[in-house]
Write a protein that binds this DNA or RNA. Sequence first.
DNA 1: GTGACAAGCTGTAACGTTTCAGTATATTGC
DNA 2: GCAATATACTGAAACGTTACAGCTTGTCAC
Lengths: 349, 349
Amino acid sequence: MDRHQTEKDDETSAPGRPTLKTLAFMTGLGVTTVSRALKDAPEIGAETRRRVQLVARQIGYRPNRAGVRLRTGKTNVISLVLNTEREIMSFVSDIIYGVSEVIADTPYHLIVTPYSRSQDPLDPIRYLVETGSADGVIISRAQPNDSRARYMLERGIPFATHGRTDMGLVHPYHDFDNYAFAAEAVRHLAGIGRRRLALLAPPVGLTYHGHTVNGFTDALSEVGASEVPFNTVSIDHSIEQIRMRTAQVMRRQDRPDGFVSSAAAATLAIVAGIEDAGLKLGRDVDVVSKQSSELLHLFRRELLVVNENFRLAGSELARSVLGWIGGAEPGSLQSLSLPGEVVAYHRPD
Amino acid sequence: MDRHQTEKDDETSAPGRPTLKTLAFMTGLGVTTVSRALKDAPEIGAETRRRVQLVARQIGYRPNRAGVRLRTGKTNVISLVLNTEREIMSFVSDIIYGVSEVIADTPYHLIVTPYSRSQDPLDPIRYLVETGSADGVIISRAQPNDSRARYMLERGIPFATHGRTDMGLVHPYHDFDNYAFAAEAVRHLAGIGRRRLALLAPPVGLTYHGHTVNGFTDALSEVGASEVPFNTVSIDHSIEQIRMRTAQVMRRQDRPDGFVSSAAAATLAIVAGIEDAGLKLGRDVDVVSKQSSELLHLFRRELLVVNENFRLAGSELARSVLGWIGGAEPGSLQSLSLPGEVVAYHRPD
DNA sequence: GTGACAAGCTGTAACGTTTCAGTATATTGC
DNA sequence: GCAATATACTGAAACGTTACAGCTTGTCAC
């Protein structure tokens, strides 16, 4: 307290957003005390604490994110990393809303970090980690051996994956039980007399491709049905490709009499292909499809559907990441969503 | 340079992310010089500038966002404000990717700020502005008298709206020409002999409701067709509501023989309603619908569609906001996207 | 009465950046 | 030869926050 010390600013002049200094001035306390009072530190008197919090609420104090971030490194940001080309449309929308629901009452913001086909999927993750841009990350399209998960695990940054990995490493995830889905679909088709089944699977490389294929084949042998190979296309292929391939296979004499489809948009293509071949859904062939919004029954009432709730997935993923950030055990933040029944169309009255 | 001055840190110890100080140490320059050299300030020698930039690139220097934000108030964030319940699904996905494309080579991050039915739409905007959380904002569902736009205009925060307003205030926007869409749809229907047309419009209250209705009615009188009132539902209503209402109207003797629908999902409901009434698309009635992804033709090949590109909208909106932030005239950042032709189904070969 | 200790509060420094007000050296005008 | 000026650089301060190391004051043990 020797020289300068311009008596700081006069607090009353600029009416800009209130800071700790403003609060300190108003309460007559020190900035440090105010800071601690706001976070319920134990060494602050109970009355002081209440007084500070009251004033803070009154004048609408909001901590400056940049200040906190600079000082502590905490960003209060969750990043959702998405593939710009391959992501299912309703997935993007629903998962964002699911995440939003959960972080709504937290100080967290959601930033969307996209990457495109051409890029290494690790790129956006590296960016996030290197620049410390997020406290937690959500990734989709998990792979059995997922370099992104491995990378983040090494750097110790909290994340959650949509879909499981298979590297013997434990981390939070949320997944839909695609094994159960495929198996249930096969059983249902077998139950209505279908015996030669084709599977439109998720792209090879993603973990749930394996789950789906296993559920499919296991159930096939369980019910004694046979598989019609259909693995030259996946749900990542274009509508046109799937449609043409379906039409092709449906024109063969040993054509399938049942399909299991892992995505709604792809199902539209399958149906188109079936009809291109001059066959009729529900008579010549049945299709069980996953869907994430209730639209397939409008499309063709003969379709059989199983619902997957992406909004729920978003919420679960957000909860997992926040849990990990909050210090919970990664292993306790894993969840699996069971498919509901295969549902056939019921005429609304 | 009297007391303390602990010779700062030894720069070589912690290998954390490089900062200006790191660069200053490596180049032997002052922090200020480095800062200026990196932003091509004129008072820095050409060689020094190149040297600093070289080193910065080599060691992968990235400015610390919190530091910049704290000092300058610049967040390098664009916020996309979305309604959690009412937003069209493909809209969310496409617009995000559209925005992402544009901001990919900029320092900007995209944060998604959702709000729900129950909230005042102004809430999220107020939050963003009050906390200074974004340099620019994108909002959708513009209204003729839009309190959000007015609010942001008053505070001077750059934004762009998806859809136009009608308050005599100028601000950036991107819009699809829904007047032209509806008019074109009517003309097309009239061209194939349809005379009693119904419009499934956007929700009242949004600006493009008016545009659509005007285009519809203007073209009706132009071609001498008549309107079958259908304004008890809008595209914001549930599939079931639209479906029932459609079935109702289709069972009347003066039923429409043509529909114009402003959204793809709603079109599914209209078709379902038509079929509920025992009528056949393409024979008893034709439907022209907007769509944002190429799916309606798979649904019913008789459907007539007009494409609206939401990804483009996202890109345009992002460009507008960035332009405004960059100092361009708001009035020069407005764009209108013209609808393509009404397209009927063409059998892929 | 003194020492120890706890309770409650405070100032300073630091996070990384940019801005402001310089300083040192070279160049020019005359 | 010297002032004026331009060039190229620099340190200190500030943005808002939290961590650290204090500082008072009061209470209690003995």
